[in-house]
Structures are given as structure tokens and as C-alpha cells.
């Protein structure tokens, strides 16, 4: 058998014997294990995405047949739509501040809640609580928190002798309020980091303690580097989510006052479902897509410099 196989061409040999080299069997396993996702992608995701890309190049009012326009929508958006650029700026500013803050707060919470303290379970639950609420409930809650006259936040400031601030009514403050609100969602990041902290080998800390390292040094020299893969995840994911923020501004301010909280997806939504401009809306979506893609690729590229993979395949002949 083996002798015969040696004489036969390689392809037939494998086809007949199903005896694969290690590399081939690894490749086959990889494809098979990724198959559910590949199938799901081809079946549920790819079609609608291609359809929306086509629609981005048309004028479509949802009901009458789309009319092909080529790149006109993109051209109009990029050169002739001030509102689009305004929403682009609002959304970018929001992302630039909210993503790092969420990561920092999440990390701090995880670190504090990853030690032996009393009522640990209760504290963890309390800090995770905001993530449990539906988007609309959060928006409603913040209407109370940010209210000028009877809001909780201004009530607290009053105790400190600070004059009431118009959190949602002042165009120059409203975006700041949204960033403040995003801190609220740090519980999800906290949970991810807590999970990641469990796989940091305790030996590393013990070794560091022998060397006399304090908690801060341990945190920055061991904890943070060891969970960089997960921090990387929350960074990419944070960018994706924050640039697609929709629910809260939709309910809370509807983009106001004076478009100061007009997030880009809210503008997209108006075009798509209020103004019968689905083609134009699709073009906005694809601009967001490329914007997020470019940012993610930049992060991905930079990750080689700062993300440490214990289980990396790199340097193993790749």
C-alpha cells in the first residue's frame, strides 16, 4: 500500500488514502471548524451586504424600483452635504473620548473587583447592572439624571454649591453629556476584563512580589500586558459600536439641540426611514463601513507593537 502510494501522484495518493500531512489535516480541521461561520456568512450576511452596496449606488424610495446612479450618492455626501459632515464630526468626537474612557473605567473596575473584598458579588452585580438595561430605559433614565431643574446630577452639584448645568439643552455641552453617559456602559468591559484576569498566571505575580513590586507596578507590568489581546478586542469593538451609536441619541435628544448630538447613524436612519432616501442612506452606511474598517486596520496594524499573544502562531513558521 505504502509502496504503491509512493509511486502514485500526490493528489491521487491523498484522495485515495485520506492520509493527510499534518499541515493538511490542520487546514482541513480549520476550515471545517470555521464552516458554520462561513456558511452563515454566505447565507445570511453576504447577500444583504451586497444588496445594500448596490442600493448605495441607486436612488431608492423603498417602494418604487431603484434607479442606478453610479457613485452620485457618494459624491453628493462627500462634497455637498454639510449635515453629513457635521454628524461625522459629532460621532468621531464621541468615539475618540468614549472608547478610551470606557476601557480605562472598565479596567479599573475589573482590577478593583478581582480581589478578596467583602460583598464582591454584590459590587460586581451593581456595576454590571447598567449593561442589563435596554437602550431605551437608559435613555429615559438619563433624561432624569440630566434634567436641569430637577435632575439628579444638578441636584448633586447643588449640594456642592455649583450652578445648574444645562446638560442636554446646550449645544456646546450635550456631546460631553453623551460621553459622560458612555461611562455608564463600562460594566460590559469590566466583565470581559474580569474574565481575562483569571487566565493571568498567579506565578507571575508571586515572582514580581519576590522582586518587591508594588500593586501599581504589578498592574502595569503584568496585568495589562497579559490581557492586551482582550484590551485590543474592546478597543476595536468600542470603535465599531461607538461609531454606530443610535438608540440613545434617538430617544434622548433626537440629534438636538441644533444638531449638536446628530450621530451619523441617526442621520442615516432619517434618510432611510423618514425621508424615503434608502439609496442615500445605504451610501452613508458604506462610508461608515469604510471609516470603521480603516480605523480597525490601523489598530490591527499597531497591535503587533503592543498586543502580547501567549498563544500566538506567529514565529511558528508563519
Amino acid at each position: 500500500m505504502i509502496r504503491g502510494a509512493k509511486r502514485a501522484p500526490a493528489a491521487i495518493r491523498h484522495g485515495l488514502n485520506f492520509r493527510l500531512t499534518y499541515k493538511q489535516s490542520e487546514a482541513l480541521s480549520g476550515i471545517l471548524m470555521a464552516a458554520p461561520w462561513i456558511l452563515g456568512f454566505l447565507f445570511f450576511v453576504a447577500g444583504p451586504m451586497i444588496a445594500s452596496l448596490y442600493l448605495a449606488m441607486t436612488r431608492w424610495d423603498l417602494f418604487t424600483p431603484p434607479r442606478f446612479l453610479g457613485l452620485d450618492n457618494f459624491h453628493a455626501l462627500l462634497t455637498d452635504d454639510n449635515t453629513f459632515w457635521l454628524s461625522f464630526r459629532v460621532t468621531t468626537l464621541y468615539a475618540v473620548f468614549s472608547v478610551p474612557i470606557q476601557i480605562a473605567v472598565g479596567l479599573a473596575l475589573a482590577q478593583m473587583l478581582n480581589q478578596k473584598i467583602r460583598l464582591l458579588g454584590m459590587f460586581r452585580s451593581v456595576y454590571y447592572l447598567p449593561s442589563v438595561l435596554s437602550g431605551v430605559s437608559i435613555a429615559i433614565m438619563f433624561r432624569w439624571i440630566f434634567g436641569t431643574q430637577y435632575g439628579l446630577l444638578n441636584g448633586a452639584l447643588k449640594l456642592l454649591g455649583i450652578d445648574p448645568i444645562s446638560w442636554l439643552g446646550d449645544p456646546s455641552i450635550v456631546l460631553f453629556s453623551f460621553i459622560l453617559m458612555s461611562v455608564w456602559g463600562s460594566g460590559a468591559n469590566m466583565l470581559i476584563y474580569l474574565g481575562a484576569l483569571q487566565s493571568v498566571p498567579t506565578e507571575l505575580y508571586e515572582a514580581a512580589e519576590v522582586d518587591g513590586a508594588g500593586s501599581f507596578r504589578k498592574f502595569f507590568k503584568i496585568t495589562v500586558p497579559m490581557i492586551t489581546p482582550v484590551i485590543f478586542f474592546t478597543l476595536v469593538n468600542g470603535i465599531i459600536l461607538s461609531l454606530q451609536e443610535f438608540q440613545t441619541p434617538f430617544i434622548l435628544t433626537n440629534g438636538g439641540p441644533a444638531n449638536a448630538s446628530l450621530f451619523i447613524v441617526l442621520y442615516l436612519y432619517r434618510n432611510a426611514f423618514q425621508w424615503f432616501k434608502m439609496g442615500y442612506a445605504s451610501a452613508i452606511a458604506w462610508i461608515i463601513f469604510f471609516y470603521v474598517l480603516v480605523l480597525s486596520l490601523l489598530v490591527l496594524r499597531s497591535s503587533k507593537a503592543w498586543v502580547y499573544y501567549e498563544g500566538s502562531l506567529k514565529g511558528r513558521g508563519e
Partner: peptide, 14 residues
């Protein structure tokens, strides 16, 4: 990763 980057509002109808 890219499948997460397109706002769902525009793939809703397809």
C-alpha cells in the same frame, strides 16, 4: 470583522 461594521439599518430590508 467587517461584517460588524455595516450599520444594520441598511441591511434590514434585504
Amino acid at each position: 470583522l467587517a461584517t460588524m461594521m455595516l450599520p444594520t439599518q441598511v441591511t434590514l430590508i434585504p
